[in-house]
Nucleic acid binder design. Structure first.
Lengths: 112, 112
DNA sequence: CAAACATATGAATATGTATTCAAGTGTGTA
DNA sequence: TACACACTTGAATACATATTCATATGTTTG
């Protein structure tokens, strides 16, 4: 009972999770990285395939994949010379879809 | 039919949404800002109240709220001298909860 | 109107980070 | 073994951005 020292008026999300959550969100906060995540959302895809598809340098894609892997958002699997990456679990997809729903939410003219 | 020039092998998320989505995610990618969002997730709360609660300077909170408001993630409402902020819609909460689920997802020892 | 309070804003700074380039590691194959 | 291919890694750079401090705007009340 040493944890939860500080009472939170907020929500169900404990204060201790915040740094982890923020790290994950910032992973998705870069357009290149978000596109990479989308590329390997459904099925495993090789680094070079991602690079070609998104017109990004292989080096850049690899750098980003390393971060995404460290953040456990994707998993790597070697097949011969190539390395295939795939989204770690389905929550990632849920998060993106929820946010897309937010974008398409109607908003009043007052708040601009 | 000038849009959708490039076919996407990826997902249901159109390529055009990516920058918007990335902007929103990066809003949540900062710990201070994420905590601020959590503070005004359920009910409107004043700037000074947020600042006190999170032990952040009023100025900093105000700066962040301006960004969050511009990104339509929160809405402002003046009540006398104070300004109350509240999360724009429920999708924001969904996104956070999904990501929290991702964090608590069991992961094998192999991927470190 | 003046003073006190609450919030907003601008400039300055310091820190982080996305991207590129060059070189390195690992894997299949002639 | 040597070469080509696929990917990784490190350093360098350019750019973005979180935070602070000082000041300004707006609002209520004496």
């Amino acid at each position: 009972m040493t944890n939860k020292t500080k009472t939170s008026t907020n929500s169900l999300i404990s204060e201790e999770l915040v740094p982890q959550l923020a790290d994950l969100f910032s992973m998705m906060g870069d357009t290149s990285r978000l596109r990479i995540i989308l590329s390997c959302l459904h099925e495993p895809i090789s680094v070079s395939h991602i690079a070609d598809q998104l017109e990004l340098s292989q080096s850049l894609v690899s750098h980003h994949l390393r971060l995404l892997k460290a953040a456990r958002m994707v998993r790597a699997e070697r097949r011969g010379k190539q390395v295939f990456y795939v989204a770690a679990d389905q929550h990632v997809q849920c998060v993106i879809e929820d946010m897309a729903a937010h974008v398409s939410e109607p908003h009043s003219v007052e708040d601009e």
